[in-house]
Design a protein around this nucleic acid. Sequence first.
DNA 1: ATGAAAGTGAGATTGATTCTCACTTTGGGA
DNA 2: TCCCAAAGTGAGAATCAATCTCACTTTCAT
Lengths: 148, 148
Amino acid sequence: MSSRRTIRSTEPMALYGRGRVSAQRAAIAKAAEAMSGAFVAEELHRAVTSVEPGIGLATVYRAISAMQSAGTLVTVGERDGCALLAICVRGDHHHHLVCTECGAVVGIDCPIDETTMRAAAREGHLVTSHQIVLYGLCARCRARTENT
Amino acid sequence: MSSRRTIRSTEPMALYGRGRVSAQRAAIAKAAEAMSGAFVAEELHRAVTSVEPGIGLATVYRAISAMQSAGTLVTVGERDGCALLAICVRGDHHHHLVCTECGAVVGIDCPIDETTMRAAAREGHLVTSHQIVLYGLCARCRARTENT
DNA sequence: ATGAAAGTGAGATTGATTCTCACTTTGGGA
DNA sequence: TCCCAAAGTGAGAATCAATCTCACTTTCAT
Ligand SMILES: [Mn+2]
Ligand SMILES: [Mn+2]
Ligand SMILES: [Zn+2]
Ligand SMILES: [Zn+2]
């Protein structure tokens, strides 16, 4: 645990995959990485403008779309009618657990296994895609809530 | 298979659980039961008004809320930014497969098993609730699509 | 360096859903 | 059967996250 260095942030523009490097998008990506857990567009906008004033809300939405297209930002749920977003750089197929206490997002292995696929197939159905969101408590909040 | 009679429809107002029996809500419940598979609010409104003109869209939305509160109507996904709804009278915990071809909704047993719960617990997390939507082809559409 | 394409900010717009409000209907008691 | 408070209704206004418009600026391949 001495020389192992945890990589904490990707090169900002990497979140967009392809596209031009504008100062605004760089700031937005940086702010998105700094967010702790899931966030909504408005929160990201507030975070960015608190550091780099003048960036418009529409620009944040455009950056969000770009990151979603690049696959580095995903919708992990919804809160008060707003899309809940989170950065996701994990490459394999998985889903997300959103902590209802602190908003932290945790990657979860896909629970759709052969059993489910086979059960559907038994009835004649074919599952081509799915969408899963888990809610609960992250390790930290669970420990904090633990009494006795 | 001679004396077994399939129950095709519930008493209309039963979908609301508690509440007053207005002609509008009865018509809306009837229309909801007649819908084949998933539908959005606007489609339900069109269906009702085609039989019982004059019923307002707001009334349909209120009926939808009432049925959702009663647990007989659930949101099974989303289509073009509109909530996808479907009647669900199955009592046990399950999820839904929405046919991307015809909109049919099929009940699916919950795939969140001990394995998933344990995997999350191993990391210290606690899963308290979840939301799952499956997309694919219903038996009929799958058979129809099948070539050779 | 040049310019066509991509990005931006401010404000207008969209559109599903909810709310307001005056009016009507319902149904449990009296 | 009658009364009336509560619940429901219709039309239109309001909400509000998200998208679009447009004139202007920035980026970057050539
Ligand atoms: Mn992830
Ligand atoms: Mn169901
Ligand atoms: Zn937490
Ligand atoms: Zn189908």
